[in-house]
Amino acid sequence: MRALARTLTAVLVAAAGVTGCSIAEPSSDVAAGSLADIASLDGRSITVGSKEFTEQLILCEITIQALRSVGAEVSENCGLVGSDTTRAALTSGDIDVYWEYTGTAWISFLKNTDPIDGAEQQYQAVADADLDNDIVWLEPAPYNSTYTIVAKTDVATEHDVKSISDYAALVKSTPDAATMCAATEFLARNDGWPGLQETYGFTLPADKLATVAEGTLYDNAAKGSPCNFAEGVTTDGRIQALKLTVLEDDKAFFPVYNPAPTVRKPVADENPELRELLKPIADALDLETIQKLSTHVDIDGEQPGDVAENWLKEQGFIG
C-alpha cells in the first residue's frame, strides 16, 4: 500500500510539473513556534515550489509549513520536473520561492564553465550575479548536495574500483562491467555526464549507458540491472540503506552544491522578513540531517509533508 501511495503521489506530482499548474492550498493551521518570535507574515501570499526529487520535496514542505506558522497564505507547487522547469517557474512568477543549489545556478543558469573554489565564495558569486535576473538568494544550508557516482558494492570490490579514475580505467578495460544508469538531466548537464567523461578521459559505449527515471537510480545499481554504476547525490539516504559504494571524485570534478532559498526580487523586497525567518532553518540543515530526513521518505515510506512537520516540531520552529 505504501508503494502504491508513493506511485500515485509521483504521478500527481509529475502531472503538476508538466502542466505548470499551482496546487493552491488554503493556509492550514500550523501552530506558531520559535519562527513566530522572529517576524510575522500575516496576510502575505507566497507560492512555494520545488523540483521533483525527495530532498527537494522535503525542502518545499519545510518552507510551506514554516511560512504558514508565521501567518502567510501559502500556495504549493512542489514537484516540478527538472531544474530548467523550476527555474522558469520562478523567473516567470509562477512560484515565488524555491531552494536551488549554488553549483547548478552557476553553471546551468548563469552559463559559467568552471565552478569557484570554496563554498562561501561560490555562494556569494551566484548571489551577486543572479541579482541581474531579479533573483535574491537567502542564506544557504551548510550541506553539499553534490553529484556522486555509486556502485554495486560487490562489483566495485571485484574490480577494485574506489574512485572515478578507477571507473574510467574499468570502462577502457572491461566495459561490460562498467554499465551506467543516469537520468536525462544529468546526461545533458556540463557538470554532469559530458563533463565527467571529458575530465576523466573516458567514453562509455552507448549500449552500456541506460537512461532511467531519477527515482530508480539507486535500486538499479543495487540490483546490478541494468547497470552496476549510477549517478547519485551525496544526500540521498538510499546510498547507505542499499549498501552502495560511493566512488571518490579524485579529480574534484563535481562543484559545490549548497542549497539556499531563491526568491523573486519583488517578493523579497515586499517580504524582507523572509531572510531572517528561513535562516535558522538553513543553519539547522546539515548533511546528517538531510540524509536522515530523506531516508524517512525513501526507505521508511513516510510522506515528505509528515517528515517536514516532525522535524520542524523537533527543532521548535513550529508548535
Rank of each mutant, 00 (worst) to 15 (best):
L12Q: 12
A15V: 04
A16H: 11
A24K: 00
S27V: 14
D29S: 13
V30L: 00
G33Y: 13
D37R: 09
S40M: 00
L41K: 04
S45P: 02
C60W: 03
A66F: 05
S69M: 01
S75T: 04
G82P: 00
D84C: 05
T85I: 14
T91D: 08
T91H: 07
G93N: 06
I107K: 13
L110W: 08
K111L: 12
N112I: 02
N112V: 03
T113V: 09
D114F: 01
P115I: 01
D117R: 01
E120N: 05
Y123E: 03
A125Q: 10
D134I: 05
V136R: 15
A141L: 04
S145L: 08
Y147M: 07
A151E: 10
H159N: 05
D166T: 03
L170N: 07
V171L: 12
T174L: 08
D176G: 12
T184S: 12
E185M: 13
D191K: 13
D191H: 12
L196D: 01
F202S: 11
K208N: 10
K208A: 10
T211W: 00
V212W: 00
A213E: 04
P226M: 04
F229L: 02
E231C: 03
T235S: 15
E248S: 11
F253K: 11
P266Y: 14
N271T: 04
A282F: 03
D283R: 00
A284L: 05
D286Y: 01
D306G: 14
